[in-house]
Design a protein around this nucleic acid. Structure first.
Lengths: 257, 257
DNA sequence: GATATACTGTATATGATGTATACATTTTCG
DNA sequence: CGAAAATGTATACATCATATACAGTATATC
């Protein structure tokens, strides 16, 4: 922490310790040997492991080993594995926020926002495996939220309406991110793009989903649309849904304006 | 499995074993003692534990203990803990699907759908902690999807458009479900409804979120809208977002029709 | 009915995990 | 210099998922 920031430690303590660490809150140590490790090194190593072998492969011992230290050395920097997950999560949220371009349509900007969020899920497949336990609190995550609020700056809306739109668009981005990373994985595993989920499970589902019990799902499954076995004529599925959301937002703005 | 269903075992084997179990696919045993346990008993016990003590408390030994059996006895019924999680997930998806009411507006129906989904998250706080790894495959989950498709039955849309709307609405329901259960928990833990997230973290964030770094988030946070410290004038936040989604859908239907 | 077979629940064991604790070492402040 | 504090390590422990081997029991076949 910089000196002069007048941070009230009492209040900061109320944050989960991982969140505090993500804000760089660490009491500086005056004596004793300088740490050879650092939070950054630890988090980077953990992210490396998660990227390659999944979140389940991230154990304290594996992270320490990859750095050439003992398991317990990590606990000199973080208080628990939970901290590590919080830090990993926020570290990959450090994405470049595009420069503000005056006159750029907000729909376009929101599209960029959504795909940037989706990209995080795709680049770090484990990201979506960490459950959300509260409103975002860590700095990089909040920076992204700040971006979305910038896009809505000139909307004639109050704070709560903006927060609702933020929730709406962000949760859609999350859902798309999860799907996109699963598709990536299926393709990496050798399936062709069209057969993601399809060949693997489609055939089995067709035997189980009987028309009397699933009258409305059945025809869609049989046509191959549930498991995306046939080519999707509306093109990018995710883009389509986003356009509907943006339509809904535009409609609201029109009514208000 | 009922006889005469002509299920091709080969193809069914491609499903994750937990999914197969959720469909009731078990090779019937001809000889040997009758099982004293059952999948249902195991899953119910696990759900009970998760409801009371969270998903982390669900261990094979704890579940077995609560039933009065040894840990390993469970493995006579399921092949792994992963199976158990899949089964738990699908078990709580067994919600009553409302009767079809001719002439009922689809917006109303979709609202019911969303709140029914949210209810699952609220009744079983652990539900949202299980990461999604594929398109829904288990029967009760598919039954819910069938319901949503029923609502859209008379929409002049193709299968893919319907699937997109399904994704859109369901992911919003999931996001709301996560938020709702977190609010429930905060209230149960003694916070008043208005102070969910607020008292706990709001004060800390206000010290950390500086206006130069977060120019757009800062005013909203200070006003208390980010952490919902002050009363939300647009009423139910989640309902508001849903209305925007439905507006977007309605807009699309109008353009097509 | 006898016997082999297959299925049950159990006991035991293994390797991994997160983390508490105690310790030896090293650096820095008074 | 010597005390204090911080670092990395070694050891220990409880808990976990699960592999394996086994003893008992119900059924199918002879």
């Amino acid at each position: 922490m910089e000196i002069g920031d007048e941070i009230d430690d009492e209040i900061i303590q109320s944050l989960p310790s991982g969140v505090a660490l993500s804000w760089g809150i660490i009491k500086p140590s005056r004596r004793g040997p300088k740490g050879e490790l650092s939070i950054k090194k630890i988090v980077d190593a953990a992210i490396d492991i998660a990227d390659n072998d999944g979140l389940a492969a991230v154990s304290m011992s594996r992270v320490a080993q990859s750095l050439g230290y003992t398991t317990m050395s990590l606990y000199r920097y973080i208080t628990s594995k939970e901290d590590l997950l919080v830090l990993m999560q926020d570290a990959v949220c450090a994405i470049p926020i595009p420069q503000e371009v005056p006159g750029k349509p907000w729909r376009e900007e929101m599209g960029e926002y959504v795909w940037a969020c989706v990209d995080v899920f795709r680049k770090h497949a484990w990201y979506g495996d960490i459950p959300i336990t509260s409103v975002p609190l860590a700095p990089n995550n909040l920076q992204v939220i700040d971006w979305m609020l910038r896009i809505m700056r000139d909307f004639p809306l109050n704070d709560f309406e903006k927060m609702s739109f933020l929730l709406l668009v962000s949760s859609y981005a999350r859902a798309c991110g999860l799907i996109a990373r699963d598709m990536d994985k299926a393709i990496r595993d050798g399936a062709s793009p069209e057969t993601f989920g399809g060949i693997t499970y489609g055939a089995a589902l067709k035997q189980l989903v009987k028309p009397d019990r699933f009258p409305h799902l059945h025809p869609i499954l049989m046509a191959g649309a549930y498991t995306d076995e046939v080519e999707n004529p509306i093109g990018n599925d995710l883009d389509f849904g986003l356009e509907r959301i943006l339509d809904g937002i535009a409609h609201y703005l029109r009514e208000k304006g």
